[in-house]
Amino acid sequence: MIRKFSLEHDRQSLFIRFAGRRYRIERSTGIVNWLNEALQTEEKADYNEVMTIYDVLCYSKENCRLANEWVNVASLFAVQGGSLEKGSSFFQEAGKYFDGNTKELAHACAALRGRKLDKGDAAYELDLFPFLPLILRFWESDEDFPASLQILTDKNVLDYMHYETLMFAITHIFERLKGNMR
């Protein structure tokens, strides 16, 4: 894991960045905490954070590599039903939350160290991990169309984590963005 992902480490801990935060994994117990930089304290990681970090570190294929080809997360070839089934409200609900708050969403993406992109009312490339980016594209609603939210991932994202874990990670990103918007 250390070599594969170029992890910072010492005898007691492994360190990894996830969604703009630095995490510490205690080697003897497996406990995962994140550094609250504002308070200079450690906070216990929540379920979505822990499961995403563990899945990437333990499940990812040996020679996982980015394809450098963006695909809509809803179109991943392995997706059959589940959270992104046609008519699902997973992205619709987040889109409704962000609607009317484009400036706040842009600020929240920047707070996660996102890199601004051109296409969309708010569009950013965000790092799930330093080695695994995603793109968030948001368009405000207008008189003809509801708000629209797209998440694009690298075509090989499922070489790094299970589909279900990708949904944990996206849920975590949405929660972080909402928290930064408040």
Rank of each mutant, 00 (worst) to 15 (best):
residue 148 S to A: 09
residue 18 F to E: 04
residue 146 P to F: 00
residue 118 D to S: 13
residue 8 E to Q: 07
residue 84 L to R: 11
residue 117 L to M: 15
residue 100 G to I: 09
residue 6 S to W: 01
residue 80 Q to V: 04
residue 95 G to Y: 01
residue 118 D to I: 06
residue 97 Y to H: 10
residue 158 L to Q: 02
residue 64 C to Q: 12
residue 109 C to Q: 08
residue 22 R to V: 10
residue 173 I to S: 05
residue 54 Y to S: 08
residue 26 E to W: 05
residue 12 Q to H: 07
residue 54 Y to M: 06
residue 163 Y to K: 03
residue 68 N to M: 01
residue 137 R to H: 09
residue 22 R to N: 11
residue 88 S to F: 03
residue 129 F to V: 04
residue 121 D to M: 11
residue 151 I to M: 11
residue 150 Q to I: 05
residue 35 L to D: 10
residue 147 A to E: 11
residue 76 L to Y: 03
residue 116 K to R: 15
residue 2 I to Q: 12
residue 30 G to P: 12
residue 47 Y to S: 13
residue 178 K to L: 03
residue 13 S to N: 15
residue 45 A to D: 06
residue 47 Y to F: 06
residue 68 N to Q: 06
residue 80 Q to I: 02
residue 107 H to Y: 13
residue 58 C to H: 08
residue 131 F to P: 11
residue 111 A to Y: 07
residue 54 Y to N: 14
residue 88 S to H: 08
residue 70 W to E: 10
residue 43 E to P: 02
residue 155 K to I: 10
residue 173 I to D: 01
residue 56 V to F: 08
residue 9 H to W: 00
residue 88 S to K: 08
residue 94 A to R: 13
residue 179 G to D: 11
residue 127 D to I: 00
residue 87 G to Y: 10
residue 172 H to F: 01
residue 101 N to E: 14
residue 144 D to G: 10
residue 167 M to L: 15
residue 107 H to V: 11
residue 153 T to S: 13
residue 70 W to D: 10
residue 179 G to H: 07
residue 4 K to C: 05
residue 7 L to F: 01
residue 159 D to Q: 09
residue 139 W to I: 06
residue 162 H to F: 03
residue 1 M to A: 10
residue 5 F to E: 08
residue 124 Y to D: 11
residue 35 L to V: 12
residue 89 S to I: 02
residue 17 R to Q: 11
residue 168 F to K: 07
residue 82 G to L: 02
residue 108 A to T: 09
residue 56 V to A: 05
residue 67 A to H: 12
residue 85 E to I: 02
residue 9 H to F: 01
residue 139 W to G: 07
residue 33 N to P: 00
residue 29 T to V: 13
residue 167 M to W: 02
residue 35 L to C: 10
residue 25 I to P: 03
residue 1 M to P: 13
residue 81 G to V: 00
residue 47 Y to M: 04
residue 146 P to V: 03
residue 56 V to Q: 08
residue 35 L to Y: 15
residue 40 Q to A: 10
residue 13 S to V: 03
residue 74 A to T: 14
residue 56 V to T: 13
residue 122 A to G: 14
residue 108 A to Y: 05
residue 108 A to V: 06
residue 115 R to C: 06
residue 93 E to R: 07
residue 117 L to E: 15
residue 107 H to N: 15
residue 173 I to G: 02
residue 152 L to Q: 14
residue 169 A to N: 06
residue 63 N to T: 05
residue 176 R to C: 10
residue 95 G to S: 14
residue 78 A to I: 09
residue 124 Y to F: 15
residue 47 Y to W: 04
residue 30 G to Y: 03
residue 58 C to N: 14
residue 6 S to C: 07
residue 39 L to G: 05
residue 77 F to P: 14
residue 68 N to C: 03
residue 74 A to K: 13
residue 48 N to E: 09
residue 108 A to S: 11
residue 60 S to R: 01
residue 182 R to W: 05
residue 13 S to Y: 07
residue 35 L to N: 13
residue 100 G to L: 07
